[in-house]
Design a protein around this nucleic acid. Structure first.
Lengths: 186, 186
DNA sequence: CCTCTAAAGTATCCATTGGATGCATTCAGA
DNA sequence: TCTGAATGCATCCAATGGATACTTTAGAGG
């Protein structure tokens, strides 16, 4: 349990975390489709085959990166103290990390079911939405729908923007439009 | 220009269209990430390198498949005679072709700008949305926003559903929820 | 303090892939 | 009929994900 300093020679000691970090950097610069295990291994300073001691396969590594992304996204969302702030924080994250966000929203069908950690990370953001958009005067079904709608709007708009389908004038313009859209469901 | 029958021997005569069709089938069964040019070439009955006479590279082929998907999606949308019918037609297409839809909505950033044909195909569906959700008593900016919102809701919900994030009970349940969501923006 | 096992690392192999080069065949227009 | 642009093919290449088998080390139990 105690943090052992990384040995320079053989036992690296910290491969998993560093691999996720390296992979994340590579995703940020070239997109997840271009990510190769060998590049990651080289960045970490380890034989490419060693990664398989920490990740089942390439998909598992990508899932870990996505999970880290969701965890990091949740942080500013937790700090949001209003619905506008939530929208802004969410949008800023996606706009600042477009390729990471694309990875986060492109995990293949069925992935969630087999990755409880990833699922939990996703739910961090949903929890914050519930905190800000839930209302005690509504039934839980109504609340669930309203929150779902907010998340769908956020994700839909940002996915389309990141894909280049939407063309709004500038990031702040998109944020303003999103805030307006989200506002009138309250 | 005249349709020449395919020669069995050398000149195939119809490679591009058949390649798109074969790629589409492979995408439908295994997802676009797993698609290989060689599999497509084999399905068409041609050397894998011949595909490069019709597509710049793998991405170009995927773009062509996505384009075909959008064209096919537009067809039922054109037949829709109400807002509910639009939502249903759109959702049914995405639910019936989840992997194709995933491909259609995952073209990398900037792709649209370089592929006018793809952009046009995407706009076919938007045009139908405008037909059904536009209102003459609103400014064009207001209409643009309302239509954008409808598309965002559709795409967001289906992308999340296909990714397995949303869990709604059954396809018809999702369609009903979507119709409700879209309804109250009118 | 020693031993011995399991975790973590390495080296090497393999089939498959996207792509490049160079040559052959065919069609269409002059 | 001739010729050049399309289209096709065979072959090569480096990179990739993954498999197998061997080596090193940490650290727990005696």
């Amino acid at each position: 349990m105690s943090a052992r300093p990384a040995r320079d020679t053989y036992r690296h000691g910290n491969v998993r975390a560093e691999a996720v970090a390296a992979a994340r950097a590579l995703v940020a610069s070239h997109g997840h489709e271009a990510l190769s295990l060998r590049q990651v291994a080289q960045a970490v300073g380890v034989a490419h085959r060693s990664l398989y001691n920490h990740f089942e396969d390439r998909e598992a590594l990508l899932d870990a990166v996505a999970e880290a992304g969701f965890v990091d996204l949740a942080e500013p969302l937790k700090a949001a103290d209003s619905r506008e702030a939530y929208v802004r924080a969410y949008a800023r994250f996606a706009l600042a990390n477009p390729r990471l966000y694309a990875l986060m929203s492109s995990r293949p069908h069925g992935t969630m079911k087999h990755r409880p950690a990833l699922q939990r990370a996703v739910h961090l953001g949903i929890t914050e939405a519930r905190r800000l958009f839930g209302r005690p005067d509504r039934t839980s079904a109504e609340n669930r729908r309203a929150i779902m709608k907010v998340i769908i709007l956020m994700h839909g708009a940002l996915a389309m923007h990141v894909a280049g389908v939407l063309d709004v004038e500038g990031d702040e313009g998109l944020i303003a439009e999103l805030q307006a859209m989200v506002a009138d469901q309250a």
